[in-house]
Simulated assay, not measured.
Amino acid sequence: MPDAPRPTLLFVVTEDWYFRSHRLPTARAARDAGFDVAVACRVANDGAAIAAEGFRVIPLPWRRRSFNPLRALGDIRRLTRLYRRERPTIIHHIAVKPTVLGGFALALAGLRDTRVVATLAGLGLGLSGPGLKAGLGRVLLRCALNAAAWRRGHALVVQNGDDGALLAAGWPRPPAARLIRGSGVDLAHYEELADPMGPVTCAQVSRMLTLKGVEDLVAAVRQVRDQGIDLRLILAGSPDPDSPAAIPEATLRAWNAEPGIEWLGPVNDVRTVWSRAHIAVLASRGGEGVPKSLLEAASCGRAIVATDVPGSREVAVDGRNALLAPPRDPAALAAALTRLALDAPLRRRFGLASRSVVDPDFGETEVRRRMRDLYLGLVTPVPAPSRR
């Protein structure tokens, strides 16, 4: 008898760079568990690297910053045709836009045997904040989740408990969420690093966006330096012109010209940043899932200063390995940075604790195992009840 066809798993994600950065380990785990893997995304510079893993790449003509109704309808129509053509065993929507558009596309495609996974890697400021617009956005998201949930085998994954609670609190009630914290960090690659020499240095690794609080961090470091404390700041990341929250490159270059501030641009290996920095910072204004930059910094044994927002506080545990400050509050951020800059024993204690926060719960091995088990659980037939 011929071998049964392998189950197919289709990832639907906005950008190829995000898939390569955050989802390759999960895709490899699925491949090793026997799935044929395809990735539908906007293809820019990382499509070839994804294809080199043995995954089929399907280009999608969408962009993260474009969410007008007419274009959204076109995206839903394209996804509907894609789902009918591919007829995958499992579709995995990653992040809010694929979940919303893909959920409605699934309802139109009518593939009743296809299983669905939706991972919300943070709700973003547009959905997690207060106000009518955010509330209506959450209603739309819940409707999309419910549109895909009429089939057998649907799983909603959130990366922090705050997002799950926020979604569960409103109408219409979405499917029950399961918690898988983050996309995993390679604990062997990101080993604990020795403390650097020289002036105390803090660093933020992120896209250079206003919503990441980069402007707040720069203002905070200026306040610390105005007190006569020689605190240095490293900013590592690109401005991401596809985002409406992008900080202009001219602004970044102007900051780079200031004493004590260095903008590196994108960095291929962030271990080179953490080898120079005593303190990891993420001044995010909210909407995080579980920030990978904090996972990597904690794995390298760095003390953390972060804003007290969902997602960040999963890794930055106040008083254990981190000091937390309210978002959008440069003065409070400056106070936390000053305290750590002047207290070397506290920095060392926090740095030692950081590794224990992420190992093993946030490790790549643990996240891969949980996602693999989720996929296999969706395709494994449930035994019929025995008859006596």
Rank of each mutant, 00 (worst) to 15 (best):
Arg42Leu: 08
Arg42Phe: 04
Val43Met: 14
Val43Thr: 15
Ala44Val: 11
Ala44Trp: 09
Ala44Thr: 14
Ala44Ile: 09
Ala44Leu: 07
Asn45Cys: 13
Asn45Thr: 10
Asn45Met: 13
Asn45Arg: 06
Asp46Met: 06
Asp46Lys: 07
Asp46Leu: 13
Asp46Phe: 06
Asp46Arg: 07
Gly47Cys: 07
Gly47Pro: 13
Ala49Ile: 07
Ala49Lys: 12
Ile50His: 03
Ala51Met: 08
Ala51Val: 05
Ala51Trp: 10
Ala51Gly: 13
Ala52Pro: 12
Ala52Arg: 08
Ala52Cys: 15
Glu53Thr: 13
Glu53Phe: 13
Glu53Met: 15
Gly54Pro: 15
Gly54Val: 05
Gly54Thr: 01
Gly54His: 03
Phe55Cys: 01
Phe55Lys: 01
Arg56Lys: 08
Arg56Gly: 03
Arg56His: 11
Arg56Ala: 02
Arg56Val: 03
Arg56Tyr: 11
Arg56Leu: 11
Arg56Asn: 04
Arg56Thr: 14
Val57Ser: 01
Ile58Pro: 00
Ile58Phe: 00
Pro59Phe: 10
Pro61Glu: 12
Pro61Ser: 07
Pro61Gln: 10
Pro61His: 11
Pro61Tyr: 04
Trp62Glu: 06
Trp62Asp: 06
Trp62Ser: 10
Arg63Thr: 12
Arg63Leu: 04
Arg64Tyr: 08
Arg64Trp: 13
Arg64Ser: 11
Arg65Glu: 08
Arg65Tyr: 14
Ser66Lys: 12
Ser66Pro: 11
Phe67Leu: 15
Phe67Ile: 06
Asn68Ala: 15
Asn68Glu: 09
Asn68Ile: 06
Asn68Tyr: 11
Asn68Met: 10
Pro69Trp: 11
Pro69Leu: 13
Leu70Asn: 15
Leu70Val: 13
Arg71Pro: 15
Ala72Ile: 14
Ala72His: 08
Ala72Tyr: 13
Leu73Gly: 11
Gly74Ile: 10
Asp75Leu: 04
Asp75His: 09
Asp75Met: 12
Ile76His: 01
Ile76Arg: 02
Arg77Gln: 05
Arg77Glu: 07
Arg77Ala: 15
Arg77Leu: 05
Arg78Tyr: 12
Leu79Thr: 05
Leu79Val: 07
Leu79Asn: 02
Leu79Trp: 09
Thr80Ala: 04
Thr80Cys: 05
Arg81Tyr: 00
Arg81Asp: 00
Arg81Ala: 06
Leu82Trp: 00
Leu82Val: 00
Leu82Gly: 01
Leu82Thr: 02
Leu82Ser: 00
Tyr83Glu: 01
Tyr83Trp: 15
Tyr83Gln: 02
Tyr83Ala: 02
Arg84Thr: 00
Arg85Gly: 01
Arg85Thr: 04
Arg85Asn: 06
Glu86Ser: 01
Glu86Thr: 00
Glu86Asp: 00
Arg87Glu: 01
Arg87Asn: 13
Arg87Val: 03
Pro88Ala: 02
Thr89Gln: 03
Thr89Lys: 04
Ile90His: 02
Ile90Ser: 05
Ile91Lys: 05
Ile91Arg: 04
His92Pro: 04
His92Ser: 13
